[in-house]
Design a protein around this nucleic acid. Structure first.
Length: 723
DNA sequence: GCACCTCGAGTTCC
DNA sequence: CTCGAGGTGC
């Protein structure tokens, strides 16, 4: 778009103008002649256009926002002082006054068709076969671009000036939303088409809302109690229909252009021969074109490209629902022609849907380990992102109220981070009036105790610490924290149902002869479980504290406690102020600890455990660890993605052995991030904050280096066959 | 009093 | 992974 020499010139002009406008007020601008004013205004427009391009199209600004604003405000003041010099393509003309009334219906210069969808590599191969057959050739070159999920738009330029922006509508007639389109800064108001010999052109693009903007917008709307947009596409489409362009300008829309629909006197096929060339012309005229536009020599390369994109799409800041594959040679387009609805020269490859709509059949309430009641949506099974989902968490009652979710509603289900499904919003348009509001239970669904809800807490709770549901969850938690393999949900259920376990301590008195009688249990399984349970007595002290399940005391807090107190007796006798004075523990956690040891059942449970030979005190290793060298002391380390050699837990344990602090979220305090296969959003955050990242190999090198002085680390590495 | 960070708790499907 | 809430430091 801009040649290097030109950029240099524009930057010099920018500096000159910044100096010129410094400290100038209305009176100064008024004192200029029309001629002088017009000359300065043209210069200002030129540099503002340039900086808009750098910022909104290239995302690579070269001046500060402050400096930009200065130039922009100067142009505004200058145009106010001399209204006669305002031109329609001036950057100040992006925002027109609001209006009441309807958007005008306009016929497109060229029809905007929709694409046929495909869903698999085989679908693509079949399409490829048809294309070759129709063209009578054995080789076809394709080009692959993202299929933006936004609002399709036709932009018409005459003599380089944007004259019209029209929604897709039915493909033949759309609505004229020029005023709103003009507010989008990645769409040039003036584009240098004449350089390419083009006088009149119709360009197709997609208006999208960047994911980051969408999230911010919804958060704000939530705060204001407004209804939420289900996805960036709806948000973009909704925004374009606003009657007030000033509002539209604030929403941060973006536009990618990806097709020349029509141009004169320069003609498609005759002068513009390939899609790639068309994209290059658009880019050269200052448009934002697709970030992926890969020319592929055959369909196999196409398939490779779309599958790679499917993996990477999470990291894009725009939503894409698939990839578009086009025949690169534009002359072939005419030969291939169109079916009733779709062109034959392009096809869409759709990603497995991340969202789906299904019916909310019921809401059931689960009782957690702490007695927290969590609403879970029972859904009519529906496929989302390749798996069938029938349940989804609703987090808490406030959220249900906020989103106004009712039983019987059709709801939009999404799988966050590719895994856990949650409900985005109800589809209110599909309501029949039969829908029932979700009632928060007044009594625990498991034990029947009356439910309590603290005034400023979001979750209702079952207060009964003897509630069977809580015992079950505690048992599972006990198994998880103390790493008792075989004590998971199903075993916990069986043990409780058979009456073998009435309190946690009972697991240390299990009878092998009874266990083997259980259906599906053999001698091996029973022995393994008993060995694992016995082994849990040797767990570190802090894990034992964690396993108690004191509210607000998880692994980290338990570590603090285990450092301060060498056994449970000391901890139990600690006063409130003694606890609250530990850094990391505040009044609420301290109260919770005191309350835990006040409760009769808990003291009883501890006594029973101790009777079974369960010792609540530091292990010799824990005492020793204090004295080991700590090369990573004070470093916060975050893991993302999967590692080849270690499970996440193991890797974190190694960091701890070296005195480092493994944490779960990337912040400015993070020292470095270890990036494995398929990293999540943490990698993006680290890059944004400029935090150092290392790969697994570098991580292993680091461990090897420190292993020399640390027996435990050495042992683990040897076990893994790394050393 | 607020912003920021950290921790705990709860969760789906296979 | 995400949300809510506790703790800390300005």
């Amino acid at each position: 778009m801009y040649a290097t020499a030109e950029e240099k010139e524009l930057q010099q002009l920018t500096d000159k103008l910044l100096e010129l406008v410094e400290g100038k007020d209305e009176n100064y601008w008024k004192s200029l002649s029309t001629e002088e004013a017009s000359k300065i205004a043209e210069d200002l427009r030129k540099v503002i256009r340039y900086h808009d391009y750098k910022y909104y199209v290239q995302a690579n600004p070269v001046i500060s926002d402050y400096q930009y604003d200065k130039l922009f405000h100067a142009l505004e003041a200058l145009e106010r002082a001399h209204p006669e010099i305002v031109t329609p393509d001036s950057p100040t003309q992006r925002i027109s006054p609001a209006f009441t009334g309807e958007f005008e219906k306009v016929k497109h210069l060229a029809e905007m068709t929709s694409l046929e969808n495909t869903y698999s590599a085989d679908d693509l191969r079949e399409w490829d076969k048809r294309v070759k057959q129709l063209l009578g050739v054995d080789e076809v070159e394709y080009i692959v671009e993202p299929k933006f999920d936004g609002a399709s738009i036709e932009l018409v330029y005459e003599d380089d000036i944007l004259v019209r922006g029209v929604t897709r509508g039915d493909g033949i007639v759309g609505e004229d939303i020029t005023m709103n389109v003009k507010t989008i800064k990645s769409i040039p108001l003036r584009a240098d088409f004449s350089k390419h010999g083009i006088k009149r052109i119709s360009v197709r693009g997609e208006i999208v809302m960047p994911k980051s903007v969408f999230e911010k917008l919804n958060k704000e709307r939530e705060k204001q109690g407004l209804s939420l947009f289900a996805n960036p596409r709806n948000a973009a489409a909704g925004t374009l229909r606003l009657k007030n362009p000033a509002e539209v300008a604030k929403r941060g829309l973006d536009c990618y252009t990806y097709q020349i629909l029509y141009s004169e006197p320069v003609k498609l096929c005759k002068d513009i021969k390939t899609q790639k060339q068309a994209l290059e012309i658009l880019a050269d005229c200052g448009f934002k074109t697709p970030p992926i536009q890969k020319v592929c020599k055959d369909i196999e390369e196409v398939i490779e490209t779309v599958l790679k994109a499917q993996k990477e799409r999470e990291s894009w800041d725009f939503e894409a629902d698939g990839m578009v594959v086009k025949v690169n040679d534009i002359c072939a387009w005419e030969k291939l022609g169109e079916t009733l609805h779709h062109p034959r020269w392009a096809v869409a490859y759709k990603f497995p849907a991340k969202q789906a709509v299904t019916k909310l059949l019921d809401v059931v309430w689960q009782v957690g380990r702490t007695g927290a009641l969590t609403p879970v949506a029972i859904l009519e099974p529906v496929e989302v992102g390749g798996v069938v989902v029938s349940r989804a968490s609703l987090f808490n009652p406030d959220l249900i109220k906020q989103k106004d979710i009712r039983i019987g509603d059709y709801v939009i289900v999404e799988r966050a981070g590719e895994t856990i499904p949650y409900i985005v919003a109800p589809v209110k348009e599909r309501r029949t009036g039969e829908e029932k509001p979700v009632e928060v239970p007044t009594h625990c669904p498991v034990c029947g105790a009356p439910i309590v809800k603290e005034l400023d807490e979001a979750v209702p709770r079952c207060p009964n610490i003897n509630c069977p549901a809580q015992l079950k969850e505690h048992l599972i938690y006990w198994g998880k924290v103390l790493d008792i393999k075989g004590l998971g949900e199903s075993t916990a259920n069986t043990l409780l149902k058979k009456g073998f376990v009435k309190s946690i301590a009972d697991i240390y008195y299990l009878d092998k002869n009874e266990l083997v009688k259980l259906p599906g249990w053999g001698l091996k399984k029973a022995e393994n479980l008993l060995t694992q349970i016995e082994k849990s007595k040797e767990a570190p002290f802090y894990k034992k504290i964690t396993a108690l399940g004191i509210r607000h005391v998880g692994e980290k807090t338990a570590q603090l406690l285990a450092k301060k107190f060498k056994n449970l007796e000391e901890l139990m006798n600690a006063s409130f102020s003694e606890l609250a004075s530990i850094p990391g523990i505040g009044p609420i956690t301290a109260t919770s600890i005191k309350n835990f040891f006040k409760a009769e059942q808990n003291v009883e449970m501890i006594k029973e455990l101790e009777k079974a030979g369960f010792k609540f005190e530091r292990t010799p290793e824990e005492e020793m660890e204090e004295q080991l060298p700590k090369p990573l002391e004070g470093q916060n380390v975050v893991f993302t993605g999967e590692l080849e050699h270690f499970k996440r837990k193991e890797a974190q344990h190694l960091i701890e052995l070296l005195g480092g602090n493994p944490t779960n979220s990337v912040t400015r305090k993070t020292s470095f991030v270890v990036v494995g296969e398929n990293p999540g959003s943490k990698l993006a955050k680290a890059q944004k904050l400029g935090i150092k990242t290392i790969n697994e190999q570098e991580f292993v090198e680091l461990l090897k280096k420190y292993a020399e002085n640390n027996e435990e680390v050495k042992r683990i590495l040897q076990e893994k066959g790394i050393l």
